Computed example of a mutant assay.
Amino acid sequence: MNKIILNKGKDKAAWQLHPWVFSGAIKSLEGDIENGDVVAVHNIEGEFIAYGIYNDTSRVAIRLLEWNPANPIDEQWWRTRVQKAIKNRTHLLHEENDTVRLIFAEADFLPGLIADKYADFISIQVHAAGVERVKHIIVDELVQQLSPKGIYERSDLKSREYEGLPNTNGLRWGVMPPTFVDVIENGIHYKVNIIDGQKSGFYCDQRENRFLVAQYAKGKRVLDCFCYSGGFTLNAFRAGAQEIVSVDSSALAVETLKNNVLHNGFDSSKHSAVQLDVNKYLRHLAEQEEKFDIIILDPPKYAPSRSTLERASRAYKELNRRGLLLLESGGLLATFSCSGAMDIETFKQVIAWAALDAGKEIQFIRQFTQPEDHPVRASFPEGEYLKGLLVRVM
């Protein structure tokens, strides 16, 4: 097998089962290695460390897969990993929930691969060149395990550019999903657009947090910012919210949300859907001296890397400052960050600064994280990206 030797002192993370090896850790390559090839990784003394996938166009030069030299990376290896990932999530699928993340990349020892189940359809995303080569195996095993109606690929990702891969979308097996797939999460029905929606079509990573926040919504006036297709809005409706205002800059998201409200039989007279930039809308609400009982802030990723963390922190602070200004004593702010580069303690500090600038005294009363179908591998803490806080204004 092709072999890669790591520099002395640069192999510690690999020994500790971290799945990424950067180019600066590589001393030499032995063999005719092409991007996407499986390689054996050794230390400078020649000891085997792990098998991995090599790609010199990626900032992650080797994605490590397997640390047992007796387990070669063959077709059965990929199939077994897919089987294990699915088995660990079957208990999450029932009549109240037919939407789940089946495969979560590095967390499931399948770096560069995402698979989400939406009712009878599966949406996949491929981030890495090595997985691109075995995509047909992955698709076949998903079919064998789950017998979906169709598998659709949404690999239109910036990360593919870094891997030297073109974007690719399209049907990979079965029948094309309809424009909107009817899914159930927490007993609530959603119309999910797998083909043109954001990410793979839906954000199932907020499933538990939507339910938790909704427990405070009965009889309350709620503002749901960055609402997308209405996850927090619909859970608040079911919990008995008195009035809900939902805001998103996407016309498709707002239209989908409106349809979801009607689809579940909720009273649309208690709902306002606004298509506008959230920060602009928050300024408008402050000018109108509007107040809410609960505000949800679930923005897109502001910090894609550590180099952008300082700028992102300023953006998070300003967003949360504007939200806090619309809450009076006893009001609740449910605020989130999906930036992996921002840890929970930094996020708390940012919210504390936002409260100080808003002239508000606050308490942190609950922390939120990602659900169990988005597990965090002990050797890969970078997989813990979603964090949130429930804040009470004093």
Rank of each mutant, 00 (worst) to 15 (best):
V213D: 03
S337M: 08
F368K: 12
S339M: 07
D373P: 09
T335E: 02
N209D: 06
D32R: 10
G265W: 05
Y281L: 03
I33C: 03
P304A: 02
K387L: 11
R322V: 11
D32T: 13
Y162S: 15
P371W: 08
I62R: 00
A341I: 13
R160I: 14
K387G: 13
K8P: 00
E384H: 15
A105N: 06
N35G: 15
M394E: 14
A334S: 08
N55F: 09
A334T: 08
R306Y: 10
N97D: 08
P72E: 13
S200T: 15
R366A: 12
W353S: 14
L326M: 04
T369V: 07
F48Y: 07
E66V: 08
G130H: 01
R207A: 10
H94E: 07
H91Y: 12
L234K: 04
G388P: 10
A341N: 04
S268A: 13
L257S: 01
D224R: 06
E243Y: 13
Y118K: 01
Q16W: 02
L257M: 10
K280Y: 09
M176H: 12
F237D: 00
Y281V: 06
L17I: 02
H42P: 06
F232A: 01
C225R: 06
L29G: 03
M394N: 15
G46V: 14
N167C: 04
P111Q: 05
D293I: 11
H42Q: 14
A352N: 14
D343P: 03
I138L: 00
M342K: 12
S329K: 15
N7Q: 14
G265I: 06
L327C: 08
G240K: 12
G323L: 03
I137A: 00
W20I: 05
E95N: 15
V143S: 02
K199H: 07
S313G: 15
G24W: 10
D298T: 11
V245K: 04
K218I: 15
N97C: 14
I351A: 04
A315Y: 04
G31L: 10
K220Y: 12
L332I: 12
N320I: 07
V393F: 09
R366T: 14
E310T: 14
L297K: 03
G112R: 01
E255C: 02
A273S: 08
K117D: 01
N7R: 13
V393D: 07
Q83R: 15
T57H: 06
A129W: 00
T90Q: 03
S268W: 13
K117F: 01
V254N: 05
E185L: 01
L285N: 07
L262M: 12
A239R: 08
S58K: 04
K258L: 11
V143H: 06
A105H: 07
G31D: 08
Y281M: 05
G265N: 04
I5F: 01
D357N: 14
G330W: 02
A85L: 04
L332S: 06
Q198D: 05
V376Y: 11
F226Y: 15
Y216M: 11
V213P: 02
V213G: 05
G187D: 09
G170T: 09
I122Q: 01
Y118M: 01
D267I: 05
A303F: 08
I296R: 00
K280D: 09
F48M: 08
R81P: 00
I49K: 01
G31M: 08
S147L: 10
C227R: 09
F368T: 14
P166M: 12
N264E: 00
